[in-house]
Simulated assay, not measured.
Amino acid sequence: MAALIQFQGFGFQYPGSPAPVIRDVSLDVQAGHFVAIVGGSGVGKSTLLRAAAGLSEPSFGHLRSSLQDSPGRRANAFVFQDSRLMPWRRVGANVAYGLEGLGLPRAEREQRVDAALRQVGLAHLKDRWPHQLSGGQAQRVGIARALAVQPDLLLMDEPFSAVDALTRQALQEELVQVWQRSAAAVLFVTHDIDEAVFLADTVIVLGGSPAGVSARIDIDLPRPRDRGTAEFAVYVKDVGAGLQA
């Protein structure tokens, strides 16, 4: 199966910086695959996401992408650490934002919005204002906005880091269900080892300075995953060892 995104010896150095922030990274994201990138602060996790989105070019190596926008669809969509909802738009209008400019008839845009909100369990909140939402609800709206454009690749930058632990776990479980119902691949950045093992097919561990890939771990566990099993604990330990390498 051809990769949607392929990093080959990828490196990135900010202009004027004496050294690259990340170098010699090779990884790929296959269609329908869930890849998590784990690492500490400043190791270039978000840099890889921006590059995958086409927002920055490699300073070294290559980045190959087969992603292309198509009629009525975006090639990729972002979900950020905060929901970034526009306070002057109701929930439904926030979800519809990514559909603007795609040339879709109004009726189809409405259908897409309704379907995306149903996927995240918020159809009943379509007419609410952002300030009327909890933190978890706001993040679900952000996910719905991304799903509405039917992306081939969903880019997620620590999307659950700002919510409480119970909400975070619920959002993780819901994300797996939403992803399994969609055709999208996911590239997910996190500093949380447990989260990465729970969500991903493959975990890429970044470390060092400049950062590089210190481990690649394929998670061979059935879904839904049980955090209480010995097998889950082994994978958590393996990812942790990669961070210490």
Rank of each mutant, 00 (worst) to 15 (best):
Q137V: 05
G98I: 00
G142E: 03
L133W: 08
L133Q: 05
S26R: 10
W129N: 09
G101D: 09
R89T: 09
D69H: 08
A123C: 11
E110V: 13
H62Y: 12
N76L: 12
A146C: 05
A146N: 01
L63I: 01
G39C: 07
S41Y: 09
A36L: 13
A52L: 01
A138D: 03
S70V: 11
Q81D: 10
G40Q: 11
A36G: 12
M156P: 00
H62P: 08
P87S: 10
A107C: 10
F80C: 06
A144P: 03
F80N: 03
S134R: 02
A138P: 01
A31F: 07
S26F: 10
A123V: 15
R106N: 09
V113H: 04
R84D: 09
M86N: 13
R118L: 02
V25W: 06
R90K: 15
W129T: 07
S41E: 08
G92T: 02
L155R: 01
V120R: 00
V25D: 08
G135A: 01
V120H: 06
R50L: 07
G40D: 09
Q139S: 04
L85I: 00
G44W: 00
R109P: 08
V113I: 07
Q81E: 12
A115T: 11
D24Q: 11
V141Q: 04
S41H: 11
D127S: 14
K126A: 14
G103L: 07
M86A: 12
A93I: 10
K126N: 12
A116R: 04
R73F: 12
A51E: 06
A93S: 13
R128N: 14
V43W: 04
G32H: 13
L125Q: 12
Q111C: 11
D82N: 12
F78M: 08
D82P: 09
D82F: 14
E100S: 13
R74E: 06
R64Y: 10
E100M: 12
D69N: 13
D28I: 10
K45D: 04
G98R: 01
L117S: 08
G92H: 04
F80M: 05
N94Q: 10
S46V: 02
G136W: 01
V29A: 05
L155A: 02
N94I: 04
V79S: 01
V141H: 03
A116F: 02
R109F: 13
V149W: 01
Q119A: 15
Q68T: 15
G44S: 06
E108Y: 06
P130I: 03
H33S: 13
A138S: 14
L55V: 02
A36E: 11
G32F: 09
V21Y: 03
R145C: 00
E57P: 07
F60H: 14
W129E: 10
N76F: 13
R109K: 15
G92A: 11
V29T: 09
A93L: 11
A93F: 09
Q68N: 13
L104E: 00
E108L: 12
A96M: 08
S26V: 08
R145G: 04
A115Q: 12
R64S: 14
L48Q: 00
E57N: 10
H62R: 15
G61H: 08
H131V: 12
G42C: 05
R140H: 05
A123H: 15
